[in-house]
Design a protein around this nucleic acid. Structure first.
Ligand SMILES: [Mn+2]
Ligand SMILES: [Mn+2]
Ligand SMILES: [Zn+2]
Ligand SMILES: [Zn+2]
Lengths: 142, 142
DNA sequence: TTCATTCTGAGAATAAATCTCATTCTCAAT
DNA sequence: ATTGAGAATGAGATTTATTCTCAGAATGAA
């Protein structure tokens, strides 16, 4: 339990927006797990906790969390957008198994350094890394 | 004009499928440009050439081209799946401008080597690399 | 309280992608 | 050349994630 709440509140204030109850609930749900998540996942999780937030509000809140630098759009599985929180969670790349859907997270400063170098060569200002590979995981190879 | 036709035909034969006229037209359209493309892009391009292929057939043919190793799913822009051909086109990574949508393609054996190393450590068998970054391009920084 | 603004939920609307199905094509066997 | 079985196609219906609309509720400063 970091201080995502504080970060979010600060961001909302800076935009003249309010940290309401639904927004708190959604923020909490997004940080309740270290797994990637989608809108329906959040919705179900929130409903299990007797809370009540509409899907519309979740869809409206996610861009705010992204803008605040708390979460990022991650992968797209089963035709749905997926997200993951980034605040308090080191950058990493993804190895995604095409068979079972397993996601392996790996840290790699090296790839970042290389990308930074290439970006500099093109005068490109990187905001978000997006590194990964698809293939077959250990178990599924048998 | 490589021999994508031959590759596609071989693949289709191996699956008991046929290289029909619509499939030829779609294949050609996919290789007519080195830009990334989406279904509507192909559809418009084909219609401009007086040809006629339904969207349904394009949607049905794309997975075949992917399976044949001729194209790959690339980016997702404006809520649409995008693709790019890979046959006869060296692997590369993408620097995508969030402002103007410009896509800079850069080669980098280094990142591949690193990813291969990381994959080996996890007994992961890589099929497709997916490397890039989002940010602001040279021009849009002013 | 008042008042202006922001938020919210419910449901309608949008649109990419998939599916259905009747018809047409393909091609190997006769 | 004819036939027949399976494959392919186009048109339109369907699905479904996401966005939009709008009427009412909450917020908070004055
Ligand atoms: Mn992750
Ligand atoms: Mn490319
Ligand atoms: Zn697996
Ligand atoms: Zn740009």
């Amino acid at each position: 339990m970091g201080n995502e709440n504080l970060v979010f509140e600060k961001y909302l204030q800076s935009k003249g927006l309010k940290l309401t109850q639904p927004r708190k609930i959604i923020l909490n749900a997004a940080f309740a797990t270290h797994e990637h998540f989608d809108v329906d996942g959040l919705y179900d999780q929130i409903r299990k906790k007797q809370k009540d937030v509409s899907r519309a509000t979740i869809y409206r809140t996610i861009p705010l969390l992204v803008e605040a630098g708390l979460i990022k759009q991650s992968l797209r599985c089963l035709a749905k957008d997926h997200y993951e929180h980034i605040y308090g969670h080191g950058r990493h790349l993804h190895l995604i198994c095409e068979k079972c859907g397993k996601i392996i997270e790996v840290e790699s400063k090296e790839t970042e350094n290389i990308l930074n170098k290439l970006a500099k060569k093109h005068n490109f200002n990187i905001k978000e890394f997006n590194v990964g590979a698809k293939g077959i995981c250990n178990k599924c190879q048998k």
